[in-house]
Simulated assay, not measured.
Amino acid sequence: MSQNNPYVNNPYAGGGAPQYPNYQPPQPQYYAAPSSKWNAMSIAGFVCSFFFSLIGLILSIIGYSQTKKTGERGGDFALAGIIISAVSLVMSILAIILLFVLFGTVITAAVAL
């Protein structure tokens, strides 16, 4: 009787799920979690950039390169430390030049009197 029944081998007639040969379900994608470790050199460079510009610049550059190599957190702090240190150094150099020019002018004016 099963030979004449059209629903026995028909996969769409409720006889179960169709069978596909060599079917592998897709594997989930796993990504590396970002490192939760902070780079101490970049944080130290950021803090030093407010008080000691040259030291802050050096530490921030080292910290920035380390964060790029290791994938640690703190690259933004290092970049901010580089910018703050560079601006502070440029302003300090300009202030020193301005002081020399002003004192040079005052001293020449005082000698001329």
Rank of each mutant, 00 (worst) to 15 (best):
M1G: 11
M1T: 10
M1S: 14
Q3H: 15
Q3V: 12
N4L: 10
P6Q: 05
N10Y: 03
P11A: 04
P11Y: 04
A13R: 05
A17W: 12
P21H: 13
Y23N: 03
Y23H: 09
Q24K: 13
P25D: 06
P26I: 07
P28L: 02
Y30S: 06
Y31E: 12
A32C: 09
A32F: 11
S35P: 02
S35N: 11
W38K: 08
W38Q: 09
N39T: 02
M41N: 12
S42W: 00
S42F: 00
I43V: 13
I43M: 11
A44P: 02
F46M: 08
F46H: 08
C48A: 15
C48F: 11
S49I: 07
F50C: 03
F50A: 10
F52A: 09
F52V: 12
S53M: 09
I55S: 06
G56R: 02
L57D: 02
L59I: 00
L59M: 04
S60P: 01
I61A: 04
Y64S: 04
Y64K: 03
Q66M: 07
Q66I: 02
Q66D: 05
Q66L: 07
K68C: 02
T70E: 14
T70C: 07
T70L: 15
T70Y: 13
T70R: 13
T70W: 10
R73L: 13
R73G: 06
G75Y: 00
D76M: 09
D76S: 10
G81I: 01
G81R: 00
I82W: 00
I82M: 07
I83E: 10
S85D: 00
A86K: 03
A86C: 14
V87L: 08
V87M: 06
V87Q: 00
L89I: 15
M91F: 12
M91Q: 13
M91H: 15
I93R: 09
I93H: 13
L94Q: 12
L94G: 12
A95F: 11
I97G: 03
I97R: 05
L98H: 14
F100M: 09
F100Q: 08
T105R: 13
V106K: 15
I107R: 08
T108Q: 10
T108D: 08
A109R: 11
A110R: 11
A112I: 14
A112Y: 14
